[in-house]
Amino acid sequence: MMDNEFDQSKESRIQRKRTSLIASLVASLQKDEHIEAKKNEQEKTDLSRNEILHEMFLFLVAGFETGATSLAWFIHLVSKYPKVQQKIKLELMNNKGD
Rank of each mutant, 00 (worst) to 15 (best):
T66Q: 08
L60W: 11
M93V: 12
I14T: 08
E65H: 09
L90C: 08
L92T: 03
S12D: 13
H76R: 11
H34W: 03
E41M: 11
N4F: 02
M93F: 07
E43P: 02
L53Y: 04
S70Y: 00
S79E: 06
K89D: 07
R18N: 09
V26P: 03
K83V: 07
H76Q: 08
K89A: 12
A68G: 05
L90E: 14
L47Q: 01
K96A: 11
L77R: 04
K96T: 09
G97F: 04
K83E: 12
M93K: 12
I22L: 10
R13C: 04
Y81T: 10
V26C: 02
L25M: 08
E51N: 08
A62E: 08
S28Q: 15
K44N: 01
D98W: 03
S70L: 09
E51Y: 03
T69A: 13
K87G: 09
Q15R: 15
E41F: 12
I52F: 04
T45N: 06
Q85I: 10
D32I: 00
D32W: 01
Q85N: 12
L60N: 12
L47V: 03
D3T: 15
L53A: 05
I22G: 00
L77Q: 09
E91K: 11
S48Q: 03
L58Y: 15
R16Q: 01
V61D: 03
M2V: 12
V78R: 04
S24G: 14
S9T: 15
S28P: 02
W73K: 14
S12Y: 10
K83T: 11
V78D: 01
I22T: 04
S12F: 08
L60F: 14
D46H: 14
L29N: 04
G67Q: 07
I35V: 15
Y81F: 09
K10I: 13
E5D: 10
M1H: 07
N4P: 02
D3I: 11
L71Q: 13
M2D: 01
K31G: 07
Q8M: 11
R18I: 05
N40A: 04
E91V: 04
F57Y: 11
I22Y: 02
K31M: 08
A68M: 07
Q8D: 06
E91I: 09
G67W: 03
Q42V: 09
V84R: 05
N4I: 01
L53I: 09
K17E: 06
I35D: 12
S20Y: 04
T69Q: 13
T19N: 10
D3S: 13
Q15P: 00
F74Q: 13
L21I: 13
P82S: 11
N94V: 07
E55N: 07
F64Q: 14
L90I: 09
D3V: 12
I22F: 00
I52G: 00
D3R: 13
L58M: 12
A27P: 04
L21Y: 12
F59V: 09
S20L: 03
K89R: 14
